[in-house]
């Protein structure tokens, strides 16, 4: 009955959704690009105004619609463009991470990182890191909506 971790099919590539704060981490991603650093194309970046904008439902919806891993990236605590957004995010997402783990997700599936706009190298490293960890873990079937398919 449980769908848990699915078997890795040949040629399987993980889908990672990265929610990046506009002011630091998204810019960090830009810097990674202009510095010609590479990171896996498995990562799909979604820009959010601030890590404090993260609605936990974004994460769950990503899992429902096929994500194998989700990462939220924001400014380092203390450096928030809106002063305190990431302080709130830190508390909220900490509680949320524990909750999704309690529901049965592996800890690797959902992560939060602080990446500044000058840390292009860290951006590439973290995105490579989560992709590697999810590759090792295998596809996610938990909460995955069976009705959701890619366009034929």
């Amino acid at each position: 009955m449980s769908v848990g971790v699915k078997e890795k099919a040949a040629g399987w590539e993980p889908l990672i959704v990265a929610f990046c704060c506009n002011w630091c981490s998204y810019a960090g991603g830009d810097l990674a690009g202009t510095s010609r650093l590479t990171y896996p194309s498995n990562v799909k970046v979604i820009r959010v105004p601030c890590s404090g904008r993260m609605n936990p439902m974004f994460v769950l919806r990503a899992f429902q619609r096929g994500a194998d891993g989700v990462i939220v990236a924001g400014c380092h605590p203390g450096d928030c463009h809106y002063s305190t957004g990431n302080y709130s995010a830190r508390r909220r997402l900490s509680a949320f991470k524990r909750l999704v783990e309690f529901a049965g997700f592996e800890p690797e599936r959902f992560e939060v990182r602080w990446i500044s706009s000058s840390e292009g190298d860290k951006f590439a490293e973290e995105m490579t890191g989560i992709t590697e960890r999810i590759k090792a873990l295998g596809p996610n079937g938990k909460m995955r909506d069976a009705r959701w398919q890619k366009k034929a």
């Binding site: 909506d145 009705r147 959701w148 398919q149 034929a152």
Partner: peptide, 9 residues
Amino acid sequence: DFGHEGAGE
């Protein structure tokens, strides 16, 4: 309806 790109049920 549960819809997605170009298809649904």
